[in-house]
Nucleic acid binder design. Structure first.
Length: 577
RNA sequence: UCCCCGGUCGUCUAACGGCAGGACAGCAGGCUCUGAACCUGUCAAUGGAGGUUCGAAUCCUCCCCGGGGAUCCA
């Protein structure tokens, strides 16, 4: 039984990592009452990308790994300047596409604004927070720097009553943006700058996408995040490495607010990919400046981009599991992602034939009006996919790249005098080459076929090395095919002092318009995925509906050891697509 | 010059004081009606110096290298 032995069949038992072990130990020791509650906390200021998939997989995965575990979706919407409902809808769509479900627990930090405000009052009453009327510039100056300690604000010793009054006036909306802020009273000498009387609340009189104009003040991340976790009963607050320095503040706030069973913050390294940028700011720039067609451009590392490209969610999850969770910064090779995409598609995608750059072939001894219907399986390793009929007629198209007038060594495709197999059809021999008299370009091949080889092997059992994909000229349907290359030329587009946009690959998109695909694809629906044999995995782009012709995205090419070998033999000639 | 974190094959990752293992990539074969998939084999690593120990990737000290940290961002 040689069914394709893909890892897609056996969902690898979840690999362990330090966070899983930590949670396991905690559950064993009845820490947090033995509960596991995580949350995925996106800020709705951009679309999710492959890096977020790792965090989503972690948070939802850990919840699922323990009995009774749950994972909330919580929008961290405390900065109305950058945020938008467009993103809250898109983010939910993307997480669902990955296969995760938060039940009815879709929360918003903005839902907690009143509770957060009350906690701030508590802090003031306890003498742990004060209103600072210094200007932004003064606050910055007094904070000190890496090497110099900070200095106490002149407003630090205001009375509790005065602070209460001032803070309530902030809330009442009577003050200008920036007039004053609420600060925690911690330690201006601390080597951890986050502890130098961090700002808890600021005045920002702008419209919020959920709370409208109700709040003229907004809580800062450090204040809002831990308390939101606490309000939701989160036990494990998993975040990325850059918040490590914030953990003492996270703990301070929960302690100061007298949270009885405080959540625990643990940091892990974010996912990085070479030849890719994963920063919302940079992705936004690509979209805004028109370097890509949108957040869902198939070259984008966004979840909607790779979804449109045809990456199966299963492949992304397996990729995340394989990469794992650690505390060390790393840059994963995009090749690993592509490996899991191929792996999932090899297992799950039906096969078809399509010619990207057609070269006309006339089979001279094939009767003019004859059409042979050949049976071809949809999957070579899995009969459950069934089969379809392929029409063979006198004129067919083969791939232009499969013919070489002067074949290099080890070439076993078509060339003058050479015999090859048309996949699932018959053997043909090239007997003549027709060129354009002016350009010299090969425009047509004249071949003969061996009728006895119909359906497979020749009668005499002779071996033929090359097998080509093909379509019948009259029966095939037209298609536009979009080939994608990496968006950036450099492994690390953000390295150096230059603009990352300078690293953009001008050849990241190649549109082929005269393609021909087999008739079974005529009714393919947007989103359908299949392999065009020998050419790669493809999916139907939604543009097909608009344009009325089939538009195919190449999801990923097949491994191509011949291209590699040919490239080594003739450096500089290698076709890189 | 300060604080925090991290350094294991090319890349990612395991090891919880006891044989440095896996995946991807690479290379060499095999099989094949996809130069795919699949199968077999193979290359390849503990940043450095000391110390503790019968035994150190793992514990300790120092050094080196990398990342993060001074938004009224998250």
């Amino acid at each position: 039984m040689a069914k394709s032995d893909s890892s897609a069949e056996k969902p690898a038992e979840a690999r362990s990592h330090f966070i899983r072990e930590m949670i396991e130990a905690g559950v064993r020791d009845e820490k947090h009452g033995g509960r596991v509650v995580t949350r995925f906390p996106p800020e709705p200021n951009g679309y999710l990308h492959i890096g977020h998939a790792s965090s989503i997989n972690l948070n939802f995965g850990m919840a699922a790994a323990f009995p009774g575990g749950i994972c909330n979706l919580r929008f961290d919407d405390t900065n109305p300047d950058a945020e938008d409902v467009e993103y809250v809808d898109g983010i939910q769509e993307d997480i669902r596409w990955l296969g995760f479900d938060w039940g009815d627990r879709c929360y918003f930090a903005s839902d907690y604004f009143q509770q957060l405000f009350d906690f701030a009052i508590l802090l003031i009453e306890k003498g742990l927070a004060f209103v600072d009327s210094s200007s932004l510039k003064e606050i910055r100056k007094l904070r000190g720097n890496f090497y110099e300690p900070g200095t106490n604000s002149p407003y630090r010793e205001r009375s509790i009553e005065e602070n209460l009054d001032l803070f309530r006036r902030m809330r009442a909306g009577k003050l200008e943006d920036g007039a004053q802020v609420l600060r925690a009273k911690i330690d201006m000498q601390s080597p951890d700058l986050n502890l130098r009387d961090p700002i808890l609340y600021r005045i920002r009189r702008v419209h919020h996408h959920r709370t409208g104009d109700e709040w003229p003040i907004y809580p800062m991340y450090d204040f809002a995040h831990g308390l939101s976790d606490a309000i939701e009963g989160v036990t494990h607050s998993l975040c990325s490495l850059e918040f490590e320095d914030h953990r003492p503040l996270y703990d301070w706030i929960l302690r100061a607010c007298e949270i009885e069973s405080p959540p625990e913050q643990t940091e892990f390294a974010r996912l990085n990919l070479n030849y890719t940028v994963l920063s919302k700011r940079k992705l936004l720039q690509l979209v805004d400046k028109g370097h890509v067609s949108g957040w869902d451009d198939p070259r984008m590392p966004t979840l909607r981009g790779i979804r449109r490209r045809g990456y199966p969610p299963q492949a992304i999850l397996q990729f995340c599991d394989e990469v794992g969770i650690t505390k060390r910064d790393s840059v994963v090779d995009v090749g690993l992602l592509e490996h899991f995409v191929r792996d999932a598609l090899n297992f799950g995608a039906p096969r078809a034939m399509g010619v990207l750059r057609p070269l006309k072939v006339v089979i001279e001894n094939f009767p003019e009006d004859q059409v042979e219907e050949l049976d071809a399986p949809f999957h070579p390793n899995d009969p459950s996919f069934g089969s379809r009929k392929l029409p063979l007629s006198r004129v067919v198209y083969v791939e232009r790249d499969d013919f070489m007038e002067e074949p290099v060594k080890k070439w076993f495709r078509l060339a003058p005098g050479r015999e090859v197999r048309l996949r699932y059809a018959c053997l043909i021999t090239c007997v003549d080459v027709i060129q354009d008299p002016n350009s010299g370009e090969v425009v047509e091949l004249r071949c003969t076929w061996d009728p006895e080889s119909l359906g497979g092997a020749p009668a005499d059992g002779r071996k033929v090395r090359g097998t080509l994909h093909w379509v019948s000229a009259d029966h095939s349907v037209p298609a536009e095919v979009r080939l994608y290359n990496r968006l950036f030329k450099d492994e690390n587009p953000s390295a150096g002092d230059g603009d990352f946009l300078d690293s953009l690959n001008p050849d990241s998109l190649e549109v082929l318009s005269g393609c021909r695909v087999e008739p079974s694809l005529a009714n393919a629906q947007s989103g359908d995925c299949f392999q065009l044999e020998r050419m790669g995995y493809f999916c139907v782009d939604p543009d097909s509906e608009r344009s009325g012709t089939l538009v195919l995205n190449r999801t990923v090419g097949l491994r191509d050891t011949w291209a590699k070998e040919a490239k080594q033999a003739a450096p500089g000639t290698g076709a890189a697509c």
